[in-house]
Amino acid sequence: MTKVTMTVNGKTVSGDVEGRTLLASFLRDDQGLTGTHIGCDTSQCGACVVHVDGVAVKSCTMLAAEADGATVDTIEGQANADGSLNVIQQAFQDHHGLQCGFCTPGMVMSAAALLKENPKPSEQEIREYLEGNICRCTGYHNIVKAIMAASGQDVTAIAAE
């Protein structure tokens, strides 16, 4: 076992992990942050996306030991300080960008990373950026729309509801 210490959602946490412990498992099992989900074994689905030192990574494809000393942000830390939904979360709700909710944490974390890099992405840029986030429910239409709306773009012209 190795001791790892990291800053998760602004709080310093530490724990003893095996070499093989994935960051996703450390967050879910050791820290109880079960908003980060595991949907595949091959680094494809993106349900586990968190930010490590400010960039999006797949936490099921990174060892907890590699995150020692890092700053980690998860879905649980995304809401505004008063507990209200942040602008991306709110846009997902307003535009029905989620159904079963399982891929949603990864989607929101990827969207946040995208908007940091590219504050006004086009529809195509959003679709390409979400290449590593699979949603089986929504058909992506409303996810794309929500991210455009969150970036302050007018989405009234995008089809119905």
């Binding site: 494809t61 990174m62 990373a113």
Partner: peptide, 9 residues
């Protein structure tokens, strides 16, 4: 290559 999260690692 891969996707944005993969490219970050």
């Amino acid at each position: 290559i891969g996707d944005p999260a993969v490219r970050n690692r």
